Computed example of a mutant assay.
Amino acid sequence: MATSGNGPMFLKVVNCFGKVKDKFFIVNLMKEVIDEVGHQNVVQIITDNASNCKGAGEIIEKIHGDAVQIKNFIMNHNMRLVIFQRYIPLKSLSVVDTRFASIIVMLKMFKLIKRGLQAMVISDEWASYREDDTGKANFVKEKLVSDNWWDKVAYIIDFTMPIHDMHRVCDTNKPCLH
Results as ranks from 00 to 15, higher is better:
135 G>D: 13
44 Q>C: 15
158 D>K: 07
122 I>Q: 12
9 M>Y: 10
166 M>T: 06
164 H>G: 08
55 G>F: 12
57 G>I: 05
81 L>M: 08
11 L>M: 07
2 A>H: 02
85 Q>D: 07
93 L>E: 05
105 V>H: 04
123 S>L: 06
28 N>M: 12
133 D>H: 02
151 D>Q: 15
171 D>K: 06
105 V>D: 08
29 L>Y: 14
136 K>S: 04
92 S>L: 09
138 N>V: 04
17 F>S: 14
63 I>A: 12
7 G>A: 12
25 F>N: 00
147 D>S: 10
86 R>L: 10
107 L>V: 04
89 P>M: 09
10 F>C: 09
19 K>F: 04
162 P>N: 01
116 G>C: 14
30 M>S: 10
14 V>P: 12
53 C>W: 12
104 I>S: 13
165 D>W: 01
134 T>A: 15
34 I>H: 01
85 Q>S: 10
12 K>D: 11
173 N>W: 04
32 E>H: 01
53 C>Y: 08
78 N>I: 05
116 G>S: 13
7 G>K: 13
107 L>H: 07
41 N>D: 13
150 W>I: 08
112 L>Y: 06
34 I>A: 02
98 T>R: 13
155 Y>A: 01
149 W>R: 13
71 K>N: 01
72 N>T: 00
122 I>K: 09
132 D>G: 02
158 D>P: 04
62 K>S: 12
11 L>S: 09
10 F>V: 07
157 I>S: 00
161 M>W: 01
145 V>L: 10
160 T>P: 05
4 S>T: 14
170 C>S: 14
135 G>H: 13
85 Q>G: 03
123 S>W: 04
148 N>F: 03
1 M>H: 07
66 D>P: 09
172 T>E: 13
103 I>V: 05
165 D>L: 03
65 G>V: 05
91 K>H: 11
62 K>H: 11
73 F>I: 00
1 M>C: 15
23 K>T: 05
26 I>G: 03
86 R>T: 08
9 M>T: 08
167 H>G: 06
57 G>F: 13
118 Q>T: 07
27 V>G: 14
100 F>P: 00
161 M>Q: 06
17 F>G: 11
67 A>P: 14
149 W>N: 10
100 F>C: 02
2 A>E: 12
79 M>R: 09
78 N>D: 05
118 Q>H: 13
106 M>K: 12
174 K>M: 12
81 L>P: 13
140 V>R: 00
11 L>H: 07
42 V>A: 02
44 Q>S: 10
155 Y>I: 00
80 R>G: 06
70 I>E: 02
13 V>W: 14
178 H>V: 15
146 S>W: 06
26 I>L: 15
169 V>P: 00
84 F>S: 01
86 R>G: 15
96 V>R: 15
64 H>P: 10
167 H>V: 03
126 W>L: 12
129 Y>T: 09
148 N>E: 11
172 T>A: 09
120 M>S: 06
53 C>K: 08
